[in-house]
């Protein structure tokens, strides 16, 4: 099966591999996995609390090349977006950008889940830090 150059590029030179300080209040961490193929993906975002803009994004994925490429691409797209814009990233966008074959669509779903989990974690942290914000929203 032919894989797109973009998948190979992200697989061979993954962007933004690493981790951010999980305990920081500005960092959201998403950890997701796909039991059927044994993949596990960690994706983190660092958000500027004033502007809501994602200033940094890191990932570490154990899995197939498509899973690595999907999460690598996700971190590229996350940087510079606001938290709410980030939630609009859909797995189908990743599929299109990387030309993923149908059998690898679940890898893009995993990346979307990871984004949502990371943003969710960040929002939870903020709400926990400022309980009055919950009451207002």
């Amino acid at each position: 099966m032919a894989y797109s150059d973009k998948v190979l590029d992200h697989y061979k030179n993954p962007r933004n591999v690493g981790s951010l300080d999980k305990s920081s209040p500005d960092v959201g961490t998403g950890m997701v996995g796909a039991p059927e193929c044994g993949d596990v993906m960690k994706l983190q975002v660092k958000v500027n609390p004033e502007t809501g803009v994602i200033e940094d994004a890191k990932f570490k994925t154990f899995g197939c090349g498509s899973a690595i490429a999907s999460s690598s691409l996700a971190t590229e797209w996350l940087k510079g977006r606001t938290v709410d814009q980030a939630l609009h990233i859909k797995n189908t966008d990743i599929v299109n950008e990387l030309s993923l074959p149908p059998v690898k669509i679940h890898c893009s779903v995993l990346a979307e889940d990871a984004i949502k989990a990371a943003i969710g974690d960040y929002k939870n942290k903020r709400n926990a830090a400022k309980p009055e914000a919950v009451a207002v929203s």
């Binding site: 950890m31 039991p35 059927e36 596990v40 570490k60 995993l110 889940d113």
Partner: peptide
């Protein structure tokens, strides 16, 4: 079914451990 699970069905402790 085994093959149709999303990550939400996997306990977070397990993911941490495997990671």
């Amino acid at each position: 079914p085994i093959g149709e699970q999303r990550s939400r069905d996997v306990p977070p402790e397990l993911l941490e451990e495997v990671f």
